[in-house]
Nucleic acid binder design. Sequence first.
DNA 1: TGAGTGACTTGAG
DNA 2: ACTCAAGCCACTC
Length: 104
Amino acid sequence: MSTTPTKEQRLWQIVNAIPYGQVASYGQLAALAGVPRGARWVGTVLKKLPTDTILPWHRVVSSRGTIAFPVNSKAFQRQYQRLVSEGIQWQGNRIPMQRYQWVP
DNA sequence: TGAGTGACTTGAG
DNA sequence: ACTCAAGCCACTC
């Protein structure tokens, strides 16, 4: 019955653990999931999430503090709004990444 | 089995 | 600070 959690499942758990009001990068999460340099894979996994997922996918941004979607896209605005509602600070289209600290 | 794909990353220029 | 190109990984057909 019980099997080893897939990398995908581990990633879900890690994303779920990103604290409110903070963000993590794709590469950062990939490394934590045991897949160094697997940043693109993280995006692939998140893309498969159902629209009504409870996972805080919006707290995942690029390593440069930008949202991965095109600025004019619907998805961008949706993620942007969620981040703003969590009180995240912005500098133009970017979030200063230095604030983030991983706390397991 | 192999070529193609993408919600990325990094290093140069 | 911005743009471009090459690299990397797991997944899909």
